[in-house]
Design a binder for these strands. Structure first.
Lengths: 341, 341
DNA sequence: CAGCCTCGCTAAACTGATTTAGCAGAGCAT
DNA sequence: ATGCTCTGCTAAATCAGTTTAGCGAGGCTG
């Protein structure tokens, strides 16, 4: 693999020029006074030899590696991670960069290992990503170079990429209002920890703000707010059952994510209620299950691919220190209708 | 980032020795005749300066990068990918290696880009991974170095890591037999393409072999075999509805994967049938949804993490050219019971 | 006492690129 | 004829390691 590759010296020799000349031509240096003919000869020689520069040699000299480190807590492991990585991968390729992936698993020793590995390899920049949108502490060691926070913010004034959860909450509320829902809109998934501790989640509070704000503008308040210890299907199920035991049945349920909505579907199914005939459902994330449900679930999509892409763009091209909010497109499917009776 | 790092020359100077001596000590070279005291001094100096070798410089000379390329068709994007990558990441860290991740998306130009990037960086080895277990063609350019196939095989005699689908099929059949199911066992998910074309899937045929073989040993044959164009929930739903229209209702359904099983659950729910009271369900993959379903689904887990780990082990330490089959543990949950009536 | 070996260590070459400093020749003005 | 500038190009240093070849001192042998 990579044996007997042509070196710059080979190219220069074949072109009948010096390494200096070859290097300058191939790097498209301005202001050099090399003749058009010299350019031709170098390009031809490089082409014929299939020349490709040795990255190690180049970065030894230039301290640039065309490599971006993608460091995350547990991103790579999660179903959502894929989009983040794919977007980053695509954008990196467009810029002729490559991605070095690392996971800290929230473990200090692993994080240290990751940082050392990154520093040893002199990556051009670091994308520091979190699984759940949250505020985190960036290890000081990497602050010497370019850093972009992905799905996270921090105390340091670093560029960051975040989903626009508040806006998404507003869109979801608007959608329900537009279908005629007003005073029987329930919410499932409130969670004190997630709403209060930005180190755990920024999404919860933002989504809630968006929902409440928009409803308030229409003079509406949420009729019921169901708390869940975790945003997992079983809690959505339990919370929905609790909801159905109350005297007035909601006309619509907003779930804080699709997994909760999945649990809610199960509970509604068991209760013999139909969606959206009896109750409308709407949610956040656009997890793959959203399209597997019957009827398919309307939900505000986490734009993972866009976010991963934006992170690389900011890292390579960017200069902002403002948080960059990526819109969460609303996937309109079949789970929202007019209020029953 | 990585400014003003101590170099080997700094260490040597502080230790009052030559670069040669320092290099040899730090690399733990055998057969060198450097004194114990020289060792001490070098280690002390390195420690005090926080010395870490520059990877670019080292690999320029040694052609080793302590980097493994993880090339896949669309693995990084998929929900299943996480486990593969995490396992590989863990094993790589244990061996002081790092992972360079690339996606070809099945596109020839992207693949070429990935290969060039890999060759330019002189990675120590390549893990060539497929999303669906299948046979594939390995680009000749990377055959010069170490290559391990992950979730795939190829015509070349390369080490490969595969899930033991046949064994899993057998375990699933055994489980149903043990619960007393015999002549009313149905199967959902047959698919000519997947079963016949190894470039599409090796899993389908292997699973089927395992199931059929074990049932045959007990003198049992599958009562119904439902075909599905894709292994997606909606096809599981449709196939199950078709199944329920037949005169004899199955006592158990084997699904070729959990997504089909999910669709089957939906159909059974609508038909008012209970699991496992009326019909037992069992499946393959251990997708996250398996534990979200009510009741939780028994399924043979794809051991992604183990597989990723094994791939790195084979790449770094290994010497086999045999395919390495990783067992698929059976997750026994609540979806299998005794046959009804 | 010469010759040889071992010990403990180092100088210098080498990896493959980029970059700085500068050289030879032509053209032109004085 | 001399000095100057401009053009087109190159030699050599540099990046930070690894590796080869070998040196000087001391001890042992014959």
């Amino acid at each position: 693999m990579g044996r007997d590759r042509a070196t710059l010296a080979d190219v220069a020799e074949r072109a009948g020029l010096s390494k200096t000349a070859a290097s300058m031509v191939l790097n498209g240096r301005e202001g050099t006074r090399l003749s058009a003919e010299a350019h031709q000869r170098v390009f031809a020689a490089a082409e014929e030899l299939g020349y490709r520069p040795n990255v190690a040699a180049r970065s030894l000299r230039t301290r640039k590696t065309a490599t971006i480190a993608f460091v995350s807590d547990i991103v790579a492991t999660t179903r959502f991670a894929g989009g983040l990585i794919r977007g980053a991968l695509d954008a990196a390729r467009e810029r002729d960069h490559v991605l070095l992936i690392t996971e800290t698993q929230g473990d200090a020793a692993f994080e240290q290992y990751a940082i050392d590995a990154i520093l040893d390899r002199q990556v051009d920049g670091v994308i520091y990503a979190a699984m759940a949108t949250r505020r985190l502490a960036v290890p000081p060691a990497i602050l010497g170079g370019r850093v972009v926070l992905l799905n996270a913010t921090s105390a340091e004034p670093l560029p960051s990429v975040l989903p626009d959860d508040e806006r998404a909450g507003a869109r979801i509320a608007e959608t329900l209002l537009a279908h005629g829902h007003r005073d029987r809109i329930a919410l499932i998934g409130r969670n004190r920890q997630k709403e209060r501790d930005p180190e755990i989640s920024l999404a919860a509070a933002a989504r809630l703000r968006g929902i409440r704000g928009t409803l308030a503008d229409a003079g509406v308040t949420l009729s019921t707010e169901g708390f869940c210890p975790e945003w997992q299907p079983e809690h959505g199920y339990t919370a929905t059952r609790a909801l159905l035991r109350r005297p007035t049945r909601p006309s619509a349920i907003i779930c804080m994510n699709d997994r909760l909505a999945f649990g809610a579907y199960q509970a509604l199914g068991e209760a013999g209620l139909s969606i959206p005939g009896d109750i409308s459902m709407i949610s956040f994330d656009d997890d793959p299950i959203a399209t597997w449900l019957r009827p398919k679930l309307s939900t505000a999509a986490l734009p993972h691919e866009q976010m991963g892409r934006r992170a690389v763009e900011l890292l390579v091209d960017g200069d902002t220190h403002e948080p960059s909010y990526v819109p969460m497109p609303l996937r309109r499917r079949r789970s929202v209708g007019a209020p029953a009776g």
